[in-house]
Simulated assay, not measured.
Amino acid sequence: MNVHALKNYIKVNDELIELILEKAGFHEISDNFSGGIEYRCAREEGKNPTAVRINKETLQASCFSTNLKGDLITLVQDKKKLSFPKTIEFISKIVKFEEVEQNDYELPFGGFYKKIQRFRENNGVKLEIYDESILDLYAMLPNKMFYEDGISFKTQDKFKIGYDVMSDRITCAWRTTSGEICGVMGRLNKREVNEFENKWFPIIPFPKSKTLFGFSENYRSIQNKGICHVFESEKSPMILDSMGSPLGLGLGGSNLSDYQANNIKSLFTEKIIVGMDEGLSQEVSISISEKLKMSRYFKNEVFYIYDKNNLWLPKDSKMSPVDLPKEDYKRLLKHCLIKV
Results as ranks from 00 to 15, higher is better:
residue 9 Y to S: 09
residue 10 I to D: 01
residue 11 K to Q: 04
residue 11 K to N: 02
residue 11 K to C: 04
residue 12 V to Y: 10
residue 14 D to I: 10
residue 16 L to W: 06
residue 19 L to Y: 01
residue 24 A to Y: 04
residue 27 H to E: 04
residue 30 S to W: 01
residue 31 D to M: 05
residue 32 N to P: 02
residue 35 G to T: 01
residue 36 G to M: 13
residue 46 G to V: 08
residue 50 T to Q: 02
residue 51 A to K: 01
residue 55 N to F: 07
residue 57 E to V: 00
residue 58 T to R: 09
residue 59 L to F: 02
residue 60 Q to N: 12
residue 61 A to W: 02
residue 63 C to L: 01
residue 64 F to E: 03
residue 65 S to A: 11
residue 70 G to Q: 09
residue 71 D to R: 05
residue 73 I to Y: 05
residue 75 L to R: 00
residue 76 V to G: 05
residue 77 Q to S: 03
residue 79 K to M: 06
residue 81 K to H: 09
residue 84 F to P: 03
residue 87 T to D: 01
residue 87 T to N: 05
residue 88 I to K: 10
residue 88 I to Q: 08
residue 93 K to D: 00
residue 94 I to A: 05
residue 105 Y to F: 15
residue 108 P to W: 05
residue 116 I to N: 08
residue 123 N to E: 14
residue 124 G to F: 07
residue 130 Y to W: 10
residue 130 Y to S: 10
residue 131 D to W: 08
residue 132 E to N: 13
residue 133 S to Y: 11
residue 133 S to W: 12
residue 134 I to R: 08
residue 134 I to S: 10
residue 135 L to D: 14
residue 137 L to E: 13
residue 138 Y to E: 05
residue 140 M to E: 08
residue 142 P to K: 03
residue 143 N to L: 07
residue 144 K to C: 01
residue 146 F to I: 09
residue 146 F to R: 06
residue 147 Y to P: 07
residue 147 Y to T: 10
residue 149 D to Y: 15
residue 151 I to T: 00
residue 154 K to G: 11
residue 157 D to M: 15
residue 160 K to D: 03
residue 161 I to W: 00
residue 167 S to Y: 12
residue 170 I to M: 00
residue 173 A to Q: 09
residue 176 T to K: 00
residue 179 G to C: 03
residue 181 I to S: 07
residue 186 G to I: 10
residue 191 R to N: 15
residue 194 N to H: 15
residue 194 N to S: 15
residue 195 E to L: 15
residue 200 W to S: 08
residue 202 P to S: 08
residue 205 P to F: 07
residue 208 K to F: 07
residue 209 S to V: 13
residue 209 S to H: 15
residue 211 T to N: 07
residue 212 L to V: 11
residue 213 F to L: 04
residue 216 S to D: 13
residue 217 E to V: 06
residue 217 E to F: 09
residue 218 N to F: 02
residue 218 N to K: 00
residue 227 I to N: 10
residue 228 C to R: 05
residue 230 V to Q: 05
residue 230 V to R: 09
residue 232 E to W: 08
residue 232 E to T: 06
residue 233 S to Q: 03
residue 233 S to K: 03
residue 234 E to R: 06
residue 239 I to W: 00
residue 242 S to D: 00
residue 252 G to T: 05
residue 253 G to R: 13
residue 253 G to Q: 11
residue 255 N to A: 15
residue 261 A to V: 03
residue 267 L to C: 06
residue 268 F to C: 07
residue 269 T to H: 08
residue 272 I to Q: 03
residue 273 I to T: 08
residue 274 V to D: 04
residue 274 V to I: 15
residue 275 G to V: 04
residue 278 E to Q: 12
residue 281 S to Q: 13
residue 283 E to A: 11
residue 288 I to M: 13
residue 288 I to K: 09
residue 291 K to E: 07
residue 293 K to D: 06
residue 294 M to H: 00
residue 297 Y to L: 12
residue 298 F to P: 02
residue 300 N to C: 07
residue 301 E to Y: 12
residue 304 Y to Q: 12
residue 306 Y to I: 12
residue 318 K to C: 06
residue 319 M to K: 11
residue 322 V to Y: 02
residue 324 L to H: 10
residue 324 L to E: 14
residue 328 D to Y: 11
residue 330 K to G: 04
residue 333 L to A: 08
residue 334 K to D: 07
residue 335 H to M: 14
residue 337 L to Y: 04
residue 337 L to Q: 08
residue 339 K to F: 09
residue 340 V to N: 04
residue 340 V to D: 04
